[in-house]
Amino acid sequence: MKAPVFEYAAPQSVEEALSLLGACQGESKIIAGGQSLMPLLNMRLARPDLLVDIGRIAGLDYIRDADGGLAIGAMTRQSDIERSALVAQRQPMLAAGTRFIAHPQIRNRGTIGGSISHADPAAVYPALAVALDMQIEVAGPAGHRSVDAADFFITYLTTALEPDEILVELRLPGFPPRAGWSFKEVSRRHGDFALAGVAATMEVDSSGVCSFARIVLFGVAAVPLRVEAAEQLLLGSKVEQSLFEEAGAMTSDTLDEPLSDIHASADYRRHLAGVLTRRALAEAAGRAA
């Protein structure tokens, strides 16, 4: 299990990285924290001609206030997000979800930008990107562009990023102060990729009626999946257990072809998605002020 031959460059700036990517004749690959890419290299499943290490670029590792929300540099380590007081205050579900990513030794290297670019369907950050309406800031040869998370994930391990582009920043609105959230998953072992997971947010008005709901599933389809039918069901309804049960059942029903593998059949995943949605909605409603 030794990586194949490749060329390596560690640019000092985003511009330099972009020109390296643009000039590469063969396949280029960006390495950030490397926690997904390195196993693929060691197994020779990834075989880039050029590896561009963006870890030496100054100024991609930050967590900042941005208009009451957050701006997070692509190279920010997952463990820094986990420990950030600002993240805990502005986006508690981001902090909580981070703890579901593998183990501390992986989070010490893994980055938020790397995880979102890699787009594993069972990973935490792509789901949170959709659930929390992240704006994905991308640098490319023609300048910067901003992509809604909802438009970013195309299919399994495939995103809207072009081969000559680099994800540089994530922008998140602040979490509404009265909203509730819940992040749940089922995995074989603690720290494993989820067999199924859900990130849910909800706002409840003073009369106990749901005024906003967002349900995003992960681990069940090729990309993070919003369950809009169930969200619609919740909107304007009085929050109570029977509603969550109905929303859970609806969530299961909306999945036509969930992923299937040796750890979980499609039917089991469909079922888990419903169970987790029901449980997450109850918790999110409980947390909503």
Partner: peptide, 12 residues
């Protein structure tokens, strides 16, 4: 791989 052949950890 150890991603699919699952050895018990301190959590299990």
């Amino acid at each position: 791989t150890f991603m699919d052949y699952l050895l018990p950890t301190i959590n299990e």
